[in-house]
């Protein structure tokens, strides 16, 4: 195989099409293996993006995209004049920022601490246990939380009462909504996200640790001067991905945790879009919901570009 590659290099320079043809001929087995993934990507990821065109239509499920009326930027105008939109954007952004500030560092810290554990049995057990909540559905997770925080029978309030305090209906307090949401987010994702960092740590050359030891580094020193720089590329990549998802809150979790009492902090763009598109009284406004989502995606894309540029400039690493 290597020889053939070298042979290819010896050929006179060719155009992109020709090079691609040769590459396909040469590595056709790999391309066949790639095919299902590409088809899946095109069918289920790229093709549906074209459906966002309904943001510029008065979409009718019966008429479809080709038969629906075009309304230009009407849905976007409506969005920017919607008096409720400011509250929704503010709630969404606050939750998103809290998610990055509070949730993002936890798997890194967890991976670093787990790396310091010497017992392989303990290490593997802890990693497996931390991974499990990722597979619990949001509905079950919110139910567990609601049961634990039940003002009458929940364990938390039983303890509060035991120490002479008054029961608190945490699920109904607007000031408690964000901490609880973030807590669930951490609980559900920290074990899963830590895998990326644990994999990165495993790939660090052990000679670097030995060199650090020679230079007099203790555990903290090795962590700060070897481990963290060793996984910095993964950290930045994950940070950029997180910024890309800044407006993407967990809609089903929000809807499950939403109630009239905590609406001041829990009503976000997605829950509003859900109401407009799927819970309206006979007029599901798919076009408006898509328009809101499109604006959200464009803003997230701009943020990703900025984060990528900043990462390139200050950390000399980037995703694209």
């Amino acid at each position: 195989m290597k020889r053939k590659n070298n042979d290819t290099r010896l050929l006179p320079p060719a155009g992109l099409g020709e090079r691609l043809r040769r590459d396909v001929l040469l590595n056709w087995r790999l391309y066949v293996l790639l095919l299902p993934g590409v088809v899946s990507l095109v069918l289920f990821k790229l093709f549906p993006v074209a459906g966002m065109v309904i943001a510029f239509q008065d979409f009718s499920a019966f008429r479809g995209i080709t038969g629906s009326t075009w309304v230009g930027l009407e849905n976007f105008q409506r969005m920017f004049t919607d008096k409720y939109m400011l509250t929704l954007i503010s709630n969404t952004v606050i939750i998103a920022i809290l998610s990055i500030v509070c949730v993002f560092p936890i798997p890194i810290i967890f991976a670093l601490l787990l790396n310091e554990e010497r017992s392989r049995v303990v290490k593997n057990s802890v990693q497996s246990l931390s991974f499990l909540p990722y597979f619990i559905s949001s509905a079950v997770m919110v139910s567990i939380l609601a049961t634990m925080l039940n003002p009458s029978t929940g364990i938390v309030n039983v303890i509060i009462r035991h120490f002479g305090g008054d029961a608190v209906n945490f699920m109904a307090r607007p000031e408690w909504f964000r901490p609880l949401y973030i807590l669930l987010q951490i609980w559900q994702t920290f074990g899963y996200n830590a895998i990326i960092y644990i994999a990165g740590i495993t790939a660090i050359n052990p000679e670097l640790y030995e060199a650090a030891e020679v230079d007099g580094c203790q555990r903290w020193g090795k962590m700060i001067h070897v481990t963290i720089p060793g996984i910095s590329t993964s950290i930045i990549t994950m940070l950029i991905i997180s910024i890309g998802q800044i407006f993407t809150v967990q809609t089903e979790r929000i809807i499950l945790m939403y109630n009239p009492s905590n609406a001041a902090t829990s009503d976000v763009i997605q829950s509003y879009v859900y109401r407009i598109a799927f819970q309206s009284l006979g007029f599901p406004d798919y076009s408006y919901g898509t328009a809101v989502n499109l604006v959200k995606s464009v803003l997230a894309f701009i943020l990703v570009i900025i984060a990528n540029k900043l990462a390139d400039r200050f950390a000399e690493t980037r995703v694209f």
Partner: peptide, 26 residues
Amino acid sequence: EQELSNLVASVYNAELAGLTGFIVGN
């Protein structure tokens, strides 16, 4: 009906949230 449907989707929830806020002391 189309206009009502969209308005009610936001106003009803906001009214309910406001009333609940008064009652529970928020």
